[in-house]
């Protein structure tokens, strides 16, 4: 490219930047406070869940969130499976038995029976109408919530999120932590710093010392929020560890393959001017 065309291209770029610049004030006006980045064991190319953390997170879910929020896509057996909290088979069986599962008995009557590991977590409310009548708004199911929530990263950070070494897929988990710790107005339990519009149906759900941890972890809202967010990330993406491990193997294979192909190509073309 000669100097003249470089200059022309620069002019075009400046014009384009100006055009996009129009847009900047609009963006600033609707700006939402961005959740702070947390450090997660499951982030990055070699990420894996912290078993103790997602076990604690499950405890928070069970003792607090479960009062209103269902987890209908997760089965009890999943809690035992590899890559998850990995509770023992006995623990999962005992846990499942504490739940009542709607079923039909041999004479065709609707009954409730004890849960089995193969059952999914039962609904809290029979339907959305019942949930709304009881709660005022519908508490969303939490099975995939960690993937169903996100926030705008803005230009140019969103480009960086896909780059190896900087990759960022944990927007949802970060948002959950921000939301659960975002009840910053003591006089208004339904005011949240991170909820779009700030008025949230869910009143401040977590308080210090609310959940009895047995492993000595701090019993603070921050810790509860992080633990339950990690658990919900697992619930949404139970195959994350398998995925990243498979991905590493696939990459090793592909890089070796690519090297072989590249040099074979060079050899084949060596005698041809191109």
């Amino acid at each position: 490219m000669n100097v003249k065309s470089k200059i022309s291209l620069s002019i075009v770029s400046v014009a384009l930047a100006a055009a996009i610049g129009f847009a900047a004030p609009a963006q600033a006006a609707g700006d939402q406070k961005k959740p702070p980045r947390q450090s997660w064991s499951f982030a990055g190319a070699f990420g894996h869940y912290d078993r103790a953390q997602i076990q604690r997170g499950f405890q928070v879910y069970r003792e607090v969130c479960q009062a209103c929020h269902s987890l209908k896509r997760v089965a009890f057996r999943n809690l035992h499976e590899k890559g998850g909290p990995e509770f023992t088979e006995g623990q999962v069986k005992a846990l499942a038995e504490q739940y009542e599962i709607p079923d039909i008995n041999d004479s065709g009557e609707a009954v409730k029976r004890k849960g089995k590991p193969s059952d999914k977590f039962p609904l809290i409310y029979a339907n959305d109408e019942a949930a709304k009548a009881a709660q005022g708004s519908i508490p969303p199911d939490l099975s995939v919530i960690a993937k169903a929530r996100s926030y705008e990263r803005g230009f140019p950070l969103f480009l960086l999120d896909a780059v190896p070494g900087f990759s960022y897929q944990e927007h949802g988990a970060d948002y959950i932590v921000a939301l659960l710790t975002g009840y910053t107005k003591a006089d208004d339990p339904n005011w949240n710093e991170y909820f779009p519009g700030h008025k949230i149906g869910m009143a401040k759900p977590l308080n210090n010392d609310q959940v009895e941890y047995t492993d000595g972890s701090p019993k603070t809202v921050e810790q509860y929020a992080k633990d339950v967010a990690a658990f919900l990330m697992w619930a949404a993406e139970p195959k994350l560890e398998e995925r990243k491990k498979t991905g590493f193997n696939a990459m090793v294979f592909l890089f070796i393959f690519a090297g072989l192909m590249f040099f074979t190509k060079k050899k084949v073309w060596a005698d041809q001017p191109h």
Binding site: A162, P164, S167, K244, A250, M251, L254, A258, M261
Partner: peptide, 26 residues
């Protein structure tokens, strides 16, 4: 053929990065 084959493997590395490490980015 060898050039297309090489390009395919280079491309699969790019593709695999998205599948395995940032599957929900796009």
């Amino acid at each position: 053929t060898i050039k297309d084959g090489s390009a395919m493997i280079f491309f699969l590395i790019f593709f695999a990065w998205f599948i395995f490490f940032v599957p929900n980015y796009l």
